[in-house]
Every structure is written in C-alpha cells, then in structure tokens.
Design a protein around this nucleic acid. Sequence first.
DNA 1: ATCTATGCAAATTCTTTGCAACATG
DNA 2: CATGTTGCAAAGAATTTGCATAGAT
Lengths: 151, 151
Amino acid sequence: MKAAVESAQTQLVKYLRERGLKRTEERMAVLREALAFDGHFEAEDLQVALRRGGQRVSRATIYRTIKLLLDANLLRRSFSSVGKQTYYENMLGSRQHEHLICVRCGRVIEFTSDFLEEALKKEAAAHGFEFKRLRIEIFGECSTCSSASLD
Amino acid sequence: MKAAVESAQTQLVKYLRERGLKRTEERMAVLREALAFDGHFEAEDLQVALRRGGQRVSRATIYRTIKLLLDANLLRRSFSSVGKQTYYENMLGSRQHEHLICVRCGRVIEFTSDFLEEALKKEAAAHGFEFKRLRIEIFGECSTCSSASLD
DNA sequence: ATCTATGCAAATTCTTTGCAACATG
DNA sequence: CATGTTGCAAAGAATTTGCATAGAT
C-alpha cells in the first residue's frame, strides 16, 4: 500500500506538470490525507484530518483540490445519497465496490461484484458508450433498524 | 396510463389518511404535476409546471411535498450526479430503469435490467437488509463525444 | 375545535468566487 | 519575475425551518 501511495503522488505531480499547474504543499497534503482514508469521507473530514496533522488548509483550497484530484482520477465520488454533502473515496485498493445503505440510520456496507461490473460495461458498450465508471447503490433498512421499527 | 395516475392519487390519499395527514390541494397538485413529467425533473421544474397550470405553491411546500411523495413511494430520486440539484422521477411506467450518463455532454440514456435488479435484491438480503430501492449509474462518454475528443 | 399545512422570510448547509498577498517554476 | 495558488470573506445555490395564519377533519 506504501507503493500505491507513492505512485499516486507521482501521478499527481505528473498531472500538475502536464498542465502547467504548480506542485504546492497544500495539494500534496490534501492528497496525502485523502489517501489515508480507508473508506469514504467528505470535504470537512479532509480539513479536520489536515488540521490534526498540523496543516492549516482553507476550505476553498480543499474544494479546489478535490476537484483536481477527481479529474486526475485519484479520487472518485462515493455513494451519493445521504444528506447533502458529497462523499469521496480514494482510488487506492482500487477494487471497485458498491454501497448498500440503510435509509434509517445511514449505515453503509460495501460489497463487490465482478459479475455486475461486467454486465454494466456491456450495457454501456451496447449503447456506444466508452465506459468510465459506475455506481450502484442499494437502499434498504438494515436488520437493526427494521426490527426497531415497531412503531 | 390514466388508470395509473388515478391509482397514484388514491395511493397518496391512503398514505395521508393512514398517518393523519391532510389531503390538501397543494399536495394533490404537486402529485398531479409530478406524474405529468415523463422523465426526470427537479424541484423548480415542479414549481414552474404548477404555476403554468395556474397553481401557486411555495417553494417550501414543494420541498415538503416531495419528501412526502418519496416516502409514499410515488417518486424516487433519479440519477444523482450532474450539478448540485436533486433530480426526481415519478414511479409511473413503474418499470425500474437505470441511467447511462455521458460525462461530457450530460446526455442520459435509460436502460432496464430485471436480472441486475434480482441480483441486487439478493445482495441486500444477504446482508440482512430489507430492500427498498436501488440506483445504478454508468458514466462514460457517448459516441458523439468520444469521437469529438481528438484533443 | 383541533391539529396539521401553508407561505414567507430568515436561516442553514455545502460549495464557489473575487481579490489581494504569496509561492512556485 | 510571470503565473498560478492560497486564504479570507462574501456570494451563491439548494433546501430547511420558525412562526403566524389558513385550512382540513
């Protein structure tokens, strides 16, 4: 995983150089913290993590950098549908995974399915699309919540 | 489709009665307009459509009613990822369908797959979840855009 | 009558932007 | 030293909420 982190950093540096953008401490720090998350996180989580590490990065820069990292394919938007914030996750452990979300308590369970991925890639191809990525979300009530709902 | 609209209205009335909520003109009007949309729409589209039909319904009520309709299973959130608004679609033509989205031009193509639905319902069950609904989004570049990107 | 709904405007939340000071290539 | 970058605070956009009034059961 160490190697993957380094390669992500290299990838960012390359991305920046290629378009005449600058390698700043803030950008590298945001990437570092983003890579440190295991699961999903939101903009504020990043800022908190950075602050905890002694880095003060403004909210504006966090947002600007997130955009950059999305474009550089170092982050992806995670599941989308709880609350109004946007959730992200890094592309390490790049195993594509999907989300099963409890609509009551917000608990999120990840699952994977090569077979679904394949089927969806074919679907894209069938419509002449060049496949980029996919997102699958299943909403339901987790066992805890559904047994608690005797209201 | 006429019948489906009526049944949706009945469903709302029942939903309201069951929880001691009131059958108001606004709620019925919002439902009526929501059912009139063929594809996806957002909160403002609803308000515009209502106004066009001579109904003045406040933004607050639109939002409050959308929540109600979501909960009553008369609407669902549509694809999620272009811009920051939320898109909805009614449950008529209740054929569950999913979205294939061009990340360049925003074109949205709908597709269906019973077989994927089944597989995902099983996935939910396997984790002890009571299945509610699902969303599948495939992102890619449509043929028009990918041939235009010779940059 | 009672209790829920609505409209309005203010408040929130998340995200973006303008601008002056600053840092990188 | 020319540009791109940052932080700050203000601006925006979408959605929510408090409260007084209106309306449904």
